[in-house]
């Protein structure tokens, strides 16, 4: 099989204005415009989104699982780094 596959895209969807785009999955498409159309058809059938981002998967650089220790261990048991001591007024809304 020498079938040429379309490149892979990662899809991010925002469910509400002002909310972050969240990764929802990936799909194949020949270019960005069609990736948006495909994302609309594959991931927003139940009104999940108001905005779609697509990013070529090959453009994403991922951290290596073998470096998990050095990268993340130093942050362990440092509760004071969590900003849980502030009261956020309700009018601020989604943050």
């Amino acid at each position: 099989m020498s079938k040429k596959e379309w490149p892979l895209w990662e899809v991010f969807i925002s469910g509400q204005h002002g909310l972050n785009h969240r990764h929802v999955g990936s799909l194949h498409a020949p270019d960005a415009e069609m990736a948006i159309n495909h994302a609309r058809d594959v991931y927003t059938r139940r009104k999940e989104g108001v905005s779609i981002w697509v990013v070529p998967s090959k453009e994403i650089t991922a951290s290596s699982p073998s470096e998990k220790g050095p990268l993340f261990d130093p942050a362990e048991s440092k509760t004071y780094r969590h900003p849980t001591f502030f009261d956020i007024p309700e009018e601020v809304g989604k943050m």
């Binding site: 194949h28 498409a29 159309n37 058809d41 594959v42 059938r45």
Partner: peptide, 11 residues
């Protein structure tokens, strides 16, 4: 022909 088109057509 591809999964994405299949879903689009079914929609």
């Amino acid at each position: 022909p591809v999964l994405e088109e299949d879903i689009a057509l079914a929609n």
